[in-house]
Each structure stands twice: as structure tokens, then as C-alpha cells.
């Protein structure tokens, strides 16, 4: 049995931003290999783990890219100018340690604002300690990418905190689900997708390649159980089980899939809650619109402080999500007429 915390730690150690997912793909492939019939990749870097079966063709996406940073220019003093990859609040970035994929460490800092106003993205730059352009250019190049530096920790016996639960914890759950599959009937494709954070781009080509009968994604979702939460509130909380997605801003889940998920949860004693998300899109939208369309849905892991380096979720919820995923992968949609 996989240990959620240990797998998550391993994945976070090879976290990659959208568009440069090579390292994380090979880490995941290595873990999945003993359980897979076939593993392959495509032009966008999606990693497919195939478990053969004679039944319905199913795709389950968890995105393996993370939000991050890309070098756009290096100035004469050796400071790095960058673009963010994916959604960030500039306030969350100041004085954050980061690491480039080549191992170079650095930190994000900002021009000093005399009026005390919050910095804008264009005020931020990266300090890698270089003494001038020449030294900096030896350490990083234009186009190189970086991620938050950091490793997950357990806050108590259930809550895990750290960068990149979004969506490496979804990948962890999907890997865990893979180990639970036994003699599956369905023809199952697990797609560890790329470039979700910039618009579900990997999922578009992955869904085309698999051309599934139905599919769903595993991603994190917002919760409404802490003081600084969103308004209007969302009826999700940590520790209350997997969240069955009803809708987000990118799709309305197929009723047949929602019913299938509820049925799988109830018949397997899996704890669940229902997710109606006002903001944010997921890979499920790409599954739904590939080819002539497919039944699509999502299972979400409730998470606090999404897109910060201190994302927090419940290990119990991750295991419930994995169990529900395994059950749904080998189930059939429930026709709702």
C-alpha cells in the first residue's frame, strides 16, 4: 500500500511548472510502472498509464503541472525578470524561496514601494545571488523555469500542508487508486496531464488520443471552512470526504456521471460531499468536449489556500478520493434519462 505523505513528498521534490513536466512525468511513471500494462507520452508531454480491459473505455485525468515561473530576461546587475505560469496573487510571491529545474536556488523580491502599496507583478524580480549578468547567465538561461521551494509537512495526524497539493495530491490519489484496481473490466487510461494551469491544454490532446466513453478528473477544490474563505461561501470542508463535482466554471458534469459517483460511494462506504464551484476550470471540461463529446465529471480534494506554498488538505479525504476513483474507473455511468 502506498503511503500518501511519502508519495506526495516524492512528487513535490520533482514538481515542474506547466510546459516543462519531464521530471515529474518520469517520477510518476516509475511509481506506476509495476501496476501498468502500458505507459506512453504524447507531443504535449502527457503521461498515459493504461490498464487494459474489455469494457468501457475510461479516462481519468490528474494534472501533473504546477504553477511556476519562467525567465524572460536577465539584467546587467544579474537579476532575473520573469513571467508567472498560471494564476498568482503577486502578494503571495514576495520573499518566497524558489528553485529552478536545474537546481539553482533563488528568491522572489520586489522593488521597494515608498507608499506601502501592494506590489504588482511587474515590480517583482528574482535574486539568484549573481554578481552581474555574466555570472547570472551561467546559472540560468532565458526560458528556464522555476517552482516554489519547499516540502510538505503534517500539521497534525490528518492535515498535510505544503506547496503543490494542486494537483500533485490529485496525482498521488490517482496513483493510489491504480494500486487498488484488481482485474478491471473497463479499459482504463490514467492521464497525468500537462499545462492544466494555463488552460487545460494537455487534457485537450489527451482526451483526443484516448477518445473515451466517459471520464473524469481529480483536482483540488476550494473549501469554506476557514475564516479567510471566499464569498459567497462554498459548502465544502476538510476531512469530510471526497467531493463529487456537480459543476465548476468550465463544465456542468454529466448527470449520469454524478449518479455513478454517488452510487459507487454509497455502495463502498466512501464518505463524500458535493461540490458546486463558482470559479475555476478543470481537465474535465476537455474530456467532455473531445471528439463528438463524452460523459464527464470530477472528484475533488477539498483544499485550503490554493495556489500558495501552504496549500492544506486532509489525508483522509485523499484516501476517500482514491477509493472512489478506483470504484468509478471500473463502473458504468448511471443513465438518468
Amino acid at each position: 500500500m502506498l503511503n500518501i505523505f511519502e508519495i506526495q513528498k516524492k512528487l513535490v521534490a520533482s514538481a515542474c511548472p506547466s510546459g516543462s513536466e519531464k521530471a515529474i512525468a518520469s517520477t510518476i511513471a516509475e511509481i506506476a510502472l509495476p501496476y501498468a500494462d502500458e505507459i506512453f507520452t504524447d507531443a504535449l508531454g502527457n503521461l498515459f498509464v493504461h490498464k487494459k480491459g474489455e469494457g468501457k473505455k475510461v479516462i481519468c485525468c490528474a494534472h501533473m503541472d504546477c504553477i511556476g515561473f519562467m525567465v524572460t530576461d536577465i539584467d546587467d546587475k544579474g537579476f532575473i525578470h520573469f513571467e508567472t505560469i498560471g494564476g498568482f496573487n503577486p502578494q503571495n510571491l514576495i520573499h518566497r524561496p524558489i528553485k529552478f529545474l536545474n537546481g539553482q536556488k533563488g528568491l522572489i523580491t520586489s522593488e521597494y514601494k515608498e507608499d506601502g502599496s501592494a506590489p504588482k507583478k511587474t515590480d517583482l524580480y528574482i535574486d539568484i545571488g549573481a554578481r552581474g549578468r555574466e555570472e547570472a547567465e551561467k546559472l540560468v538561461a532565458i526560458g528556464d523555469t522555476a517552482v516554489y521551494e519547499g516540502s510538505p509537512v503534517m500539521l497534525n495526524d490528518d492535515l498535510i500542508m505544503g506547496p503543490y497539493l494542486d494537483d500533485l495530491i490529485g496525482c498521488t490519489a490517482l496513483l493510489y487508486a491504480l494500486t487498488l484496481l484488481k482485474d478491471n473490466k473497463n479499459d482504463i487510461y490514467l492521464a497525468f496531464t500537462t499545462q492544466e494551469e494555463v488552460g487545460c491544454r494537455g487534457a485537450k490532446t489527451a482526451s483526443y488520443t484516448v477518445n473515451a466513453d466517459f471520464g473524469f478528473c481529480i483536482d483540488v477544490t476550494m473549501v469554506g471552512d476557514y475564516p479567510a474563505t471566499t464569498k459567497p461561501p462554498i459548502a465544502l470542508a476538510l476531512g469530510k470526504g471526497a467531493a463529487i463535482k456537480i459543476k465548476d466554471s468550465s463544465l456542468i458534469c454529466s448527470k449520469d456521471i454524478v449518479e455513478m459517483m454517488k452510487k459507487c460511494a454509497e455502495s463502498n462506504g466512501i464518505k463524500y460531499q458535493l461540490e458546486v464551484l463558482r470559479y475555476g476550470g478543470t481537465d474535465a471540461s476537455a474530456i467532455q468536449l473531445a471528439h463528438g463529446g463524452a460523459l464527464a465529471g470530477g472528484i475533488s480534494i477539498p483544499t485550503r489556500y490554493i495556489h500558495t506554498p501552504v496549500e492544506t488538505c486532509s489525508v483522509f479525504d485523499v484516501i476517500e478520493t482514491a477509493k472512489l476513483t478506483a470504484a468509478c474507473l471500473d463502473a458504468e455511468p448511471v443513465p438518468s434519462v
Binding site: L44, M70, T72, H81, R201, Y208, T209
Partner: peptide, 23 residues
């Protein structure tokens, strides 16, 4: 040289995610 701005959208955005995708 490099195009250092990350603004604007071009045909690339559609072309590379068409069908099974391309470089």
C-alpha cells in the same frame, strides 16, 4: 532574439492542442 513579453495570443494557441497535439 527572444520575445520576452508573455502577452497576446496567436494561432499557436490553437494549433498545438489540435487533435493529439504537436510541438
Amino acid at each position: 532574439q527572444f520575445r520576452t513579453s508573455a502577452n497576446a495570443v496567436t494561432d499557436s494557441s490553437r494549433l498545438h492542442v489540435t487533435n493529439a497535439g504537436s510541438k
